[in-house]
Simulated scan of single mutants.
Amino acid sequence: MSGTELTLTLSGGTAADARAVVRALEPAFGAPEEEPPADDRVTVHTARFEHDPADPPPGGAPGTGGHLSGAVTVTVQGSPQAVAKARERLGHTFTAQEQGSVSGDQEQEWQLLLEP
């Protein structure tokens, strides 16, 4: 794996909430491999970002994800650098409370509660 890979899982929100969280991360990671589903019947939304640090994504300003309809639980998983960058971006865009983490040799996972 070259570059930075980040996987985002969002539960407890709507499709619009998932899009808002993805948009908050796009200045740092670029567009996700696939857009989250637009169907509000989906209960868990996922997005995967893959970014080569040698090819910076456009922008770089703090994310402008928008508003959330309510509290959502987000799990970010990837390299320590990618997870730290995602936590920073989400914390600048939303009110974020850390709910826990798991660290491995080359990967981290953080769970955050994002509030509107």
Rank of each mutant, 00 (worst) to 15 (best):
D52F: 03
H45K: 01
A24Y: 07
L112H: 09
S2E: 15
A31F: 13
S101K: 03
T46S: 05
G30Q: 13
S79W: 05
S2P: 09
V22D: 08
A71I: 01
T14I: 13
P53T: 09
S103A: 13
R87G: 02
P57E: 00
F29C: 05
P58C: 09
V76T: 10
V72I: 12
S11Q: 05
H92D: 06
E98R: 08
M1Q: 12
P57H: 03
D52V: 04
P62Y: 06
P32A: 05
V42Y: 03
T64Q: 10
D105H: 10
A54Y: 07
L68W: 03
R87L: 02
T4D: 06
A38P: 04
L8V: 08
F94A: 01
P32M: 08
R89F: 15
P80G: 09
K85C: 02
A18G: 08
A16F: 12
V22I: 14
W110S: 09
V102T: 12
G3A: 07
H45C: 01
S79A: 10
T75L: 01
R87M: 03
S11F: 06
P27H: 00
V42M: 05
F49A: 00
A86W: 00
V76E: 05
E50Q: 10
G104P: 01
H51S: 06
E109D: 10
T46Q: 07
G60K: 04
L8C: 00
A16S: 09
L68Q: 03
A16I: 09
E35K: 15
P80K: 14
P36Y: 15
G104K: 00
A16N: 11
E50S: 08
L8W: 01
D39K: 05
H45Q: 00
H92I: 01
S101C: 05
D105G: 15
G104F: 03
G3W: 04
P37A: 12
G91E: 01
Q106H: 14
P57G: 02
E115Y: 09
P37K: 07
P62T: 04
G91A: 06
F49G: 01
A54N: 06
L68F: 08
E50N: 02
P56T: 05
L10K: 13
T9F: 02
A20S: 11
P116H: 14
D55E: 13
T9A: 15
Q108W: 06
T73M: 14
A84E: 06
L6R: 10
R41D: 12
S2I: 14
H45Y: 08
G78E: 14
A96C: 12
R19W: 02
G100E: 00
L25D: 03
A82S: 11
V74F: 01
H45S: 02
Q111R: 14
V76C: 12
A47R: 00
D55S: 12
S69K: 13
D55F: 07
